Computed example of a mutant assay.
Amino acid sequence: MKRHLVLLASLLLAVVSVSAIARAEDQSFKEGQDFITVKPVVKVPGVKQPYVIEYLWLGCPHCQAMNPIIEHYEHEHPKVKFVRRPAIGKDRWVFDAHVFYALQETGNGELIYKIMEFYHNLAGSERRLPDKEDLKPFLTQHHIDADKFYKAMDSDATLENLSAAYQDQEALGIKGVPTFLVGGQYIMTLASITQAKDPQARFEALMNYLVEKTQHN
Score class of each variant (00 low, 15 high):
Y73A: 10
I144D: 04
I144F: 02
F82L: 15
E117R: 15
H62Q: 08
P137G: 06
A146F: 00
A165K: 04
I187R: 12
T140N: 05
S192Q: 14
E71N: 13
T158Q: 01
Q141S: 06
Y166R: 10
L129G: 00
I193E: 06
E160H: 08
D134H: 04
L181E: 07
L111F: 02
I115M: 03
L58T: 02
Y186R: 07
I112N: 08
L159T: 05
I144Y: 06
K148E: 02
A196N: 12
D154H: 01
K132Y: 03
P68T: 13
K81N: 03
M66R: 11
V83A: 00
T179Y: 06
N108W: 05
D91P: 14
E105T: 02
H75G: 15
C60S: 12
F138Y: 12
K132A: 09
L58M: 11
L135F: 00
T189W: 13
A152H: 00
V80Y: 04
D134E: 08
Y73E: 11
D96A: 07
A164K: 12
T189F: 13
M66I: 14
L172N: 04
R85S: 11
H77Q: 11
F100Q: 03
D134F: 01
G173V: 07
D91Q: 10
I69L: 14
P137A: 06
Y150K: 01
H142F: 14
A97L: 05
P68N: 12
D147T: 15
G124M: 13
A191W: 13
M153Q: 08
E54R: 14
A102L: 07
Q141M: 05
S163A: 11
F180Y: 15
Y166C: 01
Q167K: 14
I187P: 01
Q141V: 07
F138A: 02
Q195I: 10
Q141R: 10
G176N: 13
D168S: 03
T194D: 10
L139M: 00
S155I: 10
F100K: 07
A164T: 08
Y51E: 04
Q104G: 03
N67C: 06
N161F: 15
N108G: 03
G176F: 12
Y113K: 12
I70G: 04
L111Q: 04
P178H: 09
A152E: 01
V99R: 00
K175E: 10
M153W: 00
G173E: 07
D154K: 06
D131T: 09
H62L: 14
A146T: 13
L58V: 05
I187K: 11
V52E: 09
I174G: 08
G107D: 09
Y51H: 06
E117S: 11
V80T: 11
Y186I: 05
A146P: 01
A146I: 03
Q185E: 11
E160C: 00
L122M: 15
